[in-house]
Structure formats: C-alpha cells, structure tokens
Design a protein around this nucleic acid. Structure first.
Length: 577
RNA sequence: CGGGGUGUAGCGCAGCCCGGUAGCGCGUUUGCUUCGGGAGCAAAAGGUCGCGAGUUCAAAUCUCGCCACCCCGACCA
C-alpha cells in the first residue's frame, strides 16, 4: 500500500478526550475516528489488523470443527420474549420499533437467534454435536462508553455456540474452545491469563475469562505465582493465610457503650484500640428484583478489615443481579439506626456471616441505636446467623485456593469469555432432540465470545512505548514499512519501488511511505504506526548499495545490501513460525 | 442515573473573574530556501465563541434553561 494514496493521517498532539495510551495512540495514528460516543470508524490500517486477527480466530475454530455463519443484527422481540431476556437484559439492549410498530432490538448477543436457528433443524442426537460461530458487529447500549475500542457501544465480536446431547459432550466442547482460545491468544504474542469468572447475565454454571494483562485494565485478577490458580476477584474464594485460631476465650456479658460521632470502622478502631480485623462491619443489601418497590433486606457481616463481595452474595442467594446496598433511609427503617451504628443483634431479617467473622468472640457491633455500640457480642448466643459463607472480596496475599503460596494481584482487559450454559436457553426456547431411545431431551449448550476490536486495542495497551505502537507480527497491519528518504531522487524511488514489488511478490505486506516529506517526519510516523520492521531507503545508503532495516520493538538497526533485503525479511518474518 | 469538569478555527489551548477590535501553537494553502528523527522565512485561507432566551447602548465574557462531550461510581467482549 502506498501511503500517498491510502488516506492515512496522523496527528502530533494527544487528543484531549483519550485517557489511556492505547486509545491516544490509535487516534494519533489514525487507526480509528470517533463518530459518536462509543462508536468508531475503523481506518484502513485498523481494519487490516482486525481482519488478521479474525482470520487467526477462524483458523483455530475451524480446525476444531466449529462452523462459521452470519446472523442478523436486527432481531425480533418474540425470540427475546421466549428466553425472558427482553426485559431481563435491561437498558443495555437497544430496542426500537419499525413502521408497523413491531418491536425489534439490535443484537447484543445471539443466544436467542442461534437457538432458534438450530432448533428448526436439529431433530436427532445424530445431528449433534455442532458448534456455530460468527464474527459480527454487536451493539450494546453501554452506560458509559470509554477508552476507545475497549468499551464501545458498537464493537466487533466473535461469538460461538456449542450444542451437545449430554453434559459430558458439552464439557468436551467447552474444553475444546478453551484450547482454541489459548491458541488464539498465544499466537498474538502477548501476556494473557485465563481466570475463573462470574457468569453475569448470560447465565450458566461454568465460566472462564481470558485477559490481556495491562495496568490500565478494568478487571482485577488474582493469581497464584506458580500458575496453579487464577480468578477474577469477583469470584475468587477468599482464604486467610493463617487459618483463624479457635478462640477459647470465655464469653463475656454484652455491654452497651456510648460511641458518639463514631461512624466508620476507622473511627471505632482508633477510639477502642481494637484492630480492624477484630471488629465486625454490618451492611444491608436489597435482594429485590430491579424495579420492584419491595426492598427484601438482608444483613451481611464481615470483619472491619474486609469488603463485601456482592457477586458472592448474588451467587449464594441465587439472584440474577448483584444486590445493591440499602440507602441510609432504608437502613434506618430496617435497623432503627444510621449506617454507622448498626449491628446484627435483634434484627428480624436474614443475617449472612462471612467466614472471617465466625471465629471472633466478644466482639463489638453497632447497637442499632445512634451513637451506641455493643461489646462482648457473640453469635449463636446474642443472635443467630442464617448462614456462614465466603462473602468477602479476596485480595493480594490471601491463601492460594488452588495450591501452595499466596495470591498476587494483576489487572487485565477481558478479551474472551467462555460459558457452559447447560439447558437454560434450550429449555426456555424448546430446543430439543430425540435421544437413542426416542425420548425428547433439552440440548446442552455453551457460548464463547471474543471481543475482536477490543483485543486489537488491548494488544496496543500492552505493547507500546513512548514513540508509538509495537505490533506483534501476527496482527500487524503490515510486515514492513518502507521510508523513502529522498522522494525526489529517482534512483532512490526506483530502488524503493523495486523492493516494494519484490517483497509483495514474496507474500510480505508492505506500506510504502512515498510522501514528499522530510525523513524525520517519516521516522516519527513509522514509530507511531508500529509496523514490526522498517526499511530506510535513502541516497546516502545507496552510495554503497545499502539500506537500513530497523526492528520497531528494539529499535535495533542493521545495514544490508539491497539484494539481501527480501531474504533477510523472509527469514525474520517467517522462519521461526 | 448520581457526583465533578469542559464546550472558542481541522487538532491542542488562551481570552471569561473585571462586558467594548476573537487570539496563540500545531495543521492546511502558495512561494523561496532546506532535506537522516516532527525544518526556516514570507504570505494566505479558515470561527453562527455548543444551542436558546434574558440583562445591557454593547455579551465569548454576566443570568437562566437546554444540548453535547469528558472524568469518578453500578454493566460487559
């Protein structure tokens, strides 16, 4: 591709509305242009990177028996009513009416459409298993789009759906996709991890996320250093390194004492001298469905040093969404006191206790009376917890639930997510098959997503330096970037053109900077765009029949004879594959 | 939706407090000189100051309303 004819435009200045490096670089390098909040046009170079990544994905999926299809972006309400998600998806599903006042939505995900598709054709166990996927634009009406392609409203996604006749088969399909995803992200040459994850609104019982590691990532991850365990903090079991010693202290009498103005655990710890991990925090959550007037409050107890993980509460209570904290007013109605002075004693609602509280004795809690706390409180004497469970947020330094050692924290960008769905959709949408005995059975399903456009930017977020992007060869828009340093020198342009043609004939993708610009401008732009190898073709070097080859990542330069360039690049690009 | 902030030339910003000629840098166009890490000089084009109303002789500037965008929280590939 010749720069002069390719609508490539870079900018020097950092755009004001881009916060993180990858977003700034994509805009500066002209890869993307914002059209509306969270909606972008992909420029020619971005599209090349996207297509390359798509083809890696296709290759790994096809080779494992998945079949590509393409489903509609506009979907009728009826299908979403069948699964119950027309309402359950909430506002992230963009709904609209056509001229006949019929309801439609833009595809945010395709479980409904794909289940409808297969149920029309799959009749027998002989038709299974099958795994269908597509690469397509999705629309989700995100609350707050940000970070460019990392959280867009419109984005390119690969979504795959597996259909099996039994659980064992579904697990095989799941493992196969796990292997495919591992191969896909490995081929990008980035640091990534797979972690245990929450299933969110998709549903299902088994789920793993793939993350590209980056400090600016939105997800907090915990992983053992020996690789024996990794999870999203959302679902990471919280285990104390030192198992709590059985406290054999004598139970003392409950005493009420005044704590005027003490509202936080910090205040209380300072005033009483009791360390935070021996204090008990009392919180209230609403377990009611969204939009319902009823609050259905529950009480949660954790140590003062811990935080409640609402997702664990969601899972424990079998809710669809993580419960929300009660407002101050609601807390007052439930407990009779404001949030700083609440405790479990005397409450008439379910009380869920975190494991960490269980071994405490003679502890301090709020008295459910403003300005007062109780000391020497003990559960199973002064109140009875409904259930004791793991409810706190795990953190760095906690015991590794999968083996030896402790957990370390990382930040990641979620680029892939695989779910075992079971029969959630096949049941509600009546997707059945006949087994060997002629009995109708619900089809076992799995679904598997990769954020294609997000991955492109996540790679940049992990691989860049102060000068620009550093593409891994696998998804680089071009392999080689030729800088024509003296565009008015016919000898220089002749050599550059010859190389351009010769390299392309060998399957090497070349961007030729043939603009009438000074060398410095071209060097800066080459670094910004991030193509793995750069050739400098200039009159100075051609005096000795030499040109320079520079590796983008290391900035290492080597001079080679013109004749040797093609062989050298073939060696660099393809030999170790 | 809650909290904070910003809207002035294609991009990045100043001007606003204290009302009176719309400015700077980058980019763009033309010419000359330059030519290996974002060149120099000269000239030029380009703006309903987010939108609407109000106050005033006079509003980018003061007041009110609306809109858009950005940042911090609850969702997700």
């Amino acid at each position: 591709m010749r720069w002069s004819k390719s609508h490539l435009h870079t900018i020097k200045e950092i755009p004001a509305d881009a916060e993180i490096a990858s977003h700034q670089l994509m805009i500066r390098a002209g890869y993307i242009k914002k059209v509306a909040q969270g909606i972008f046009t992909y420029g020619p170079l971005a599209l090349r990177a996207i297509r390359k990544f798509e083809n890696i994905v296709r290759h790994e999926l096809n080779s494992r028996g998945a079949v590509e299809v393409l489903m509609p972006m506009v979907q009728p309400r009826e299908l979403w009513d069948e699964s119950g998600r027309w309402n359950a998806m909430g506002k992230s599903l963009l709904k609209f009416k056509n001229r006949l006042e019929q309801d439609f939505c833009l595809g945010a995900t395709h479980e409904e459409v794909v289940t409808d598709y297969i149920r029309r054709d799959v009749k027998s166990y002989r038709d299974l298993p099958v795994n269908l996927y597509q690469i397509q634009t999705k629309y989700r009406d995100e609350i707050r789009p940000r970070f460019g392609l990392l959280r867009g409203r419109e984005f390119i996604m690969k979504d795959a759906y597996s259909f099996d006749s039994d659980v064992a088969g579904a697990h095989r399909s799941y493992r196969l996709m796990f292997e495919a995803y591992t191969a896909i992200f490995k081929s990008l040459g980035v640091h990534f991890v797979s972690v245990r994850a929450d299933t969110g609104s998709i549903g299902g019982t088994m789920s793993e996320e793939f993350h590209i590691l980056a400090d600016s990532g939105e997800d907090a991850l915990l992983a053992a250093e020996d690789g024996s365990f990794a999870a999203n903090v959302e679902v990471c079991p919280a285990l104390d390194v030192e198992p709590p010693v059985t406290n054999t202290a004598q139970l003392k009498e409950v005493e009420k004492f005044a704590t005027p103005g003490l509202k936080t655990i910090d205040d209380l710890s300072k005033a009483t001298g009791v360390p935070k991990h021996e204090l008990v925090k009392t919180l209230f959550y609403s377990t009611a469905e969204e939009g319902s007037k009823d609050v259905k409050p529950v009480c949660v107890l954790v140590r003062g040093s811990d935080e409640v993980n609402p997702i664990k509460l969601k899972i424990l209570l079998g809710l669809n969404e993580p419960p929300l904290l009660l407002t101050e007013k609601e807390v007052r109605e439930v407990s009779g006191a404001s949030p700083g002075s609440c405790g479990p004693v005397g409450l008439k609602i379910p009380i869920y206790m975190d494991n960490g509280v269980f071994n405490l004795k003679n502890y301090i809690v709020g008295a459910n009376e403003d300005g007062f706390h109780l000391k020497n409180v003990n559960h199973n004497r002064d109140y009875t917890p409904t259930e004791v469970a793991d409810l706190r947020v795990a953190r760095e330094g906690d015991k590794n639930p999968g083996g030896k050692g402790v957990l370390k924290s990382y930040r990641g960008i979620e680029v892939g997510h695989i779910f075992y769905l079971g029969t959630k959709y096949s049941k509600s949408m009546h997707a059945t098959y006949l087994n060997e005995k002629g009995e109708p059975k619900d089809i076992e399903m799995g679904c598997y997503g990769i954020g294609i456009s997000r991955t492109i930017q996540a790679v940049i977020e992990q691989l860049h330096d102060k000068d620009g992007i550093i593409w891994p060869t696998a998804i680089a828009p071009f392999h080689v970037h030729i800088c024509v340093l003296d565009p008015s020198d016919t000898n220089v342009t002749a050599v550059a053109d010859k190389l351009y043609n010769e390299l392309q004939s060998q399957g090497i993708e070349v961007l030729l900077d043939d603009r009438n610009e000074r060398p410095g401008v071209k060097f800066k732009d080459a670094d910004l765009l991030g193509v793995p190898y750069r050739l400098n073709v200039g009159s100075r070097g051609l005096q000795t029949n030499e040109i320079e080859i520079i590796e983008r990542q290391s900035k290492k330069m080597e001079k080679i004879k013109v004749d040797g360039v093609t062989a050298k690049l073939r060696d660099l690009l393809f030999s170790h594959a």
